[in-house]
Design a protein around this nucleic acid. Structure first.
Lengths: 344, 344
DNA sequence: TTGTATGCGTTATCAC
DNA sequence: GTGATAACGCATACAA
C-alpha cells in the first residue's frame, strides 16, 4: 500500500487487478465490451479496496452527471424546507440524485457565483435555483428558477399566483368592511413581493379606495421587520383597521406587537399573512393567510427540470401555481369607530 | 467567442485580460502578490464574462474545499428535515458551505458507495452521514455519523440516549399500573431501534414483569407497519393495555387503528411514541412521546465535524444526546378488567 | 510581479 | 476485448 495517496484511485484498482485503467473504468461504468472474467475480477478488487469513484474527477471529464442541484439561500426557513420536500418527493425514482447546496455565509456576493459554479461544470445535470441574485444564466444552462427576482426570467420558472392571492385577501378584507388596510412589504428584490404588493394596490383600486402611502411599510419577509413595521403602522394617528403582511413570518410579528399594545385580534385589528406556514394554523387566533402550496412548486420545478433535460423546449417560461385564501380567525368586521364616515 | 466550449474557463478570462492563467488563478483566489492594476482588470473581465470557477476542477486540484457534506438517505421525512435544520443552523458563519446529498434511488447498495465518493475526493472538507449502511470508513476520512448502524462506530458519532428514553417510558407506563405493554420495534438495523428495545426490556425487568414475546412486533419505523403491528397486537386474546411504539410514525398508526377498532385512547388503550415529531402535539389526544432533540443532534454533529477539521482528536467517540419524556394525553390508568390479578 | 510546466482522477479516442 | 494517451479546468512549484 502506497502511503502517498490517502484515497484509493482507479489506478490502484487497475494495478491490483492486473489490468489497465481503461479497463477498470469500463468495469466501473458497466460498459458491455469487457470479458466476464475480467469484469468479475475488477469488481472484486473494487470491493476489497473499498474503491469509490471521485465524483469531482468523474463529472469533470464526462460532462454528464445524474445529479440535480438545488440551490437555496438557506435551509432552516420553513419556506425553503417545503421546497426541499417538494423537490425531494418529485425526484424519487427519477433516476437522479439530489444535491442541495446552501452557502454558510450570510448570502453575500459570492453566493451568486458559487451556484453557477455548481452547474457550469458537469457536477450536476441541471440546477433548480431559489431566489437567485443573478437573473441571467449562461446560454445552454439547464436551469429552473423558483420565485425569480425581477420580472422576466429567461429560463423556465415557477412562481405562485402572488398577485391573485393578494387580490383575494383584499376582496375579503374590503368585503368585511375594512377601508384602512395597512400593508407590510416583502423583500423588494423578489418577484413575489412585487406581485403581492400589486395585488394589494389592485384590490384597493377595484374597490375605489384611494391608495394611502402612509399605510405602506417596507419589509423583508422577516419576523423582526414585521415587529417594527407593525409598531409603526399601529402608532399612526389614524391606524389601519387591518394589516396585510406580505408573508406569514411578518404577520406573526404583527400579532405579537398587537398583543403587546393591548390590541385584541381580530376584535381591534384584523391580520392577514401569506404562505400558510404550518405554525399559522396553531397560532391563536389562527392566522388568515394565503396558501401557495410551496411544496407543489418544488414538484413542478422538478418536473420542468426533467423536461428540460429531455431536451424539450418549454413554451410557458413562467409556470404559475394557484393560490387560495385560507380563512381563519384573525379577521373580523372593523371596529365601528374606525369606519370611514363615507361608508356610514 | 469560441463556440467550442459552452462554459467559460479561467483560460478564457486570462486571454481576454491579456494575462496568463496563473495570474487569473491568483486573482480568483485573492492572492496578495498581484499588481492592483492587473487585479482590477482581471476582476472586471471575470464580471463581464460572467465567469465562475468550476467547483469540481477546483476541489480536485486542491484537496481542500470549504464545504461540509451532509448525507441523508432521504429528505422528506421529518426526522431528516430536523437534522438538516440543525446542521443548517450550526453551519452559519462557520465559513463552510453546506452540501446535502441524497440518492434518488430507493437507497440501494449503490448508496453507500456514492456517499463515500463525495468525501473521498476533495469535494467536501468532511461529511456528516446519517444512518450509513457501511459502518467502516477509510482511515483518514473526516466523517461524523448520526445514529449509526450496529453498535461500535470507529468515527465520531452522535446518538440519542435511546435506551434511557425508552426506560423512562416504561417507568411511566408501569407507574400508571400497566402490566401488559406491547412493543412495536423500529428498523432492526439501526442502533436507535436496538437501544429502544433494550430500554423496553430493562423497564420490564426493573419492575419484575416477565417478558412476553407475544407482545413484541417487529417494525420498520413506518406508519404503514405501525398499522399492521397495532392490529396484530390488539387482536391478541389478551391484548396489551398499552402500546409503546419505537417511533412516533408507528405510534400514529396505532392511534388510527385503535380508532378504527372502536377503542378510545387513552381510556381503553394507552399509546406512547418516540421522537416528538411536531405533529404528535397536534394529534388528539396529544401523543405521549420521547423528545430526543433531533435538531440538537445536527448541531452537535456539526460541532464535532468542526473539531475534527481542526485536527483535534476526540476522546468520546460516541456523543449521547439526552432524551426526555413528553407526557401528553395518550396515556391513562389501564382499564380495570385488564389489570393483572396479582396487582389486585 | 508574472509566466511555464506539471499533475489532480477520470473518461474518450484511437490504436492494437 | 484491451491498452496507451490525451484531454477536462484548475492550482502550484519553479523559473524568469
Amino acid at each position: 500500500m502506497r502511503t502517498k495517496h490517502p484515497t484509493v484511485r482507479i489506478q490502484d484498482v487497475a494495478r491490483a487487478a492486473g489490468v489497465s485503467v481503461t479497463t477498470a473504468s469500463r468495469v466501473l461504468n458497466n460498459k458491455d465490451d469487457v470479458a466476464p472474467a475480467t469484469y468479475a475480477k475488477v469488481r472484486r478488487v473494487m470491493q476489497e479496496l473499498n474503491y469509490t469513484a471521485s465524483l469531482a474527477a468523474k463529472s469533470m471529464r464526462s460532462h454528464t452527471a445524474n445529479v440535480i442541484g438545488l440551490l437555496v439561500p438557506e435551509v432552516v426557513e420553513v419556506y425553503h424546507q417545503e421546497i426541499i420536500k417538494g423537490v425531494g418527493e418529485a425526484i424519487r425514482n427519477s433516476g437522479y440524485d439530489l444535491m442541495i447546496y446552501t452557502p454558510g455565509r450570510p448570502t453575500g456576493a459570492t453566493w451568486e457565483q458559487e451556484h453557477v459554479a455548481l452547474l457550469s461544470n458537469g457536477l450536476t445535470a441541471g440546477c433548480i435555483v431559489v431566489t437567485p441574485s443573478a437573473p441571467r444564466f449562461p446560454e445552454g444552462a439547464k436551469v429552473v428558477v423558483i420565485d425569480p427576482q425581477g420580472d422576466g426570467a429567461d429560463v423556465p420558472s415557477v412562481v405562485a399566483r402572488n398577485r391573485v392571492g393578494a387580490l383575494a385577501v383584499m376582496e375579503y378584507l374590503i368585503g368585511l368592511g375594512h377601508r384602512r388596510i395597512g400593508f407590510i412589504g416583502g423583500r423588494a428584490d423578489t418577484l413575489s413581493a412585487i406581485r403581492r404588493f400589486q395585488g394589494y394596490k389592485d384590490g384597493l383600486a377595484a374597490a375605489g379606495i384611494a391608495f394611502d402611502s402612509a399605510l405602506i411599510v417596507a419589509g423583508d419577509y422577516s419576523y423582526e421587520r414585521g415587529l417594527v413595521a407593525a409598531h409603526q403602522l399601529l402608532s399612526l394617528p389614524a391606524p389601519p383597521t387591518a394589516i396585510f403582511a406580505a408573508n406569514d413570518r411578518s404577520a406573526m410579528g404583527v400579532l405579537d406587537v398587537a398583543q403587546r399594545m393591548g390590541l385584541h385580534v381580530p376584535q381591534d385589528l384584523s391580520v392577514v399573512g401569506f404562505d400558510n406556514l404550518p405554525e399559522t394554523a396553531q397560532a391563536v387566533p389562527g392566522l388568515t393567510t394565503v396558501d401557495q402550496s410551496i411544496r407543489e412548486m418544488g414538484h413542478i420545478a422538478m418536473d420542468l427540470m426533467l423536461r428540460v433535460l429531455r431536451g424539450e423546449t418549454l413554451e410557458p417560461q413562467l409556470v404559475k401555481v394557484s393560490t387560495r385564501l385560507i380563512v381563519r380567525g384573525s379577521c373580523q368586521l372593523p371596529p365601528t369607530h374606525y369606519r370611514s364616515p363615507s361608508t356610514t
